[in-house]
Design a protein around this nucleic acid. Sequence first.
DNA 1: ATATTGCGTAACTTTGAAGTTACAAATGTA
DNA 2: TACATTTGTAACTTCAAAGTTACGCAATAT
Lengths: 107, 107
Amino acid sequence: MATPNLDVFQVIADPSRRQILQLLTKDSYNINSISENFEMSRPAISKHIKILQTAGFVSIQVIGKEHYCMLNQEGFSKIRNWINHFDKFWNNKLKNLETVLKNKAKS
Amino acid sequence: MATPNLDVFQVIADPSRRQILQLLTKDSYNINSISENFEMSRPAISKHIKILQTAGFVSIQVIGKEHYCMLNQEGFSKIRNWINHFDKFWNNKLKNLETVLKNKAKS
DNA sequence: ATATTGCGTAACTTTGAAGTTACAAATGTA
DNA sequence: TACATTTGTAACTTCAAAGTTACGCAATAT
């Protein structure tokens, strides 16, 4: 379970981290093979993964000396909740508009 | 129309900006009345609004000397698209699992 | 005409995030 | 045992974002 002390929005704000998440939609990768896909040092990737894991976007399976990374729904759902909240706002606005129009039609 | 040179994820990464968006679900406010809701200087709020507007989260209506801010769907939809993309990933994963299970049942 | 109000922006300071290199620990292999 | 591989982390540098104050401009009010 991820200990979400990190701000999920802050976590996905970094373009490199979003690219890592994008990569992980294709397959599971260990730290080294992830860093082969980026022009960045391995320690940098390692830190990003740590952050993504702590925030609940990635989970890690250790096999021998290799740490395989895969996507974790937990972090994404927090972002989705936030978006849903504002979607409700727009829906309510639309509903109110409809009500106004209906009342106008009656009179 | 917003000129989205800004990274929408970077824009919503700031907690103050998210609080501003939250406030704007209640009503429209001008810059001064927004800053009354925060322990921050008015210029700071002004900058945040500028950023939110440029990224398409907020639109502004100038009435006299007052600048009224209201929510704009444009920015939010980009975030939703990103989330939807990963939702597809999970759905595909689920579908594949179902297929595997069905094939196992047949044999 | 003058003062006030609402806002934007320039100039500056501070702080933290993101990257680097160097080193250490743990696992697997010859 | 000795060596290579995979990873984590400490120490450091760099840079940009977020805040401040000070100032100027435009619209409104007196």
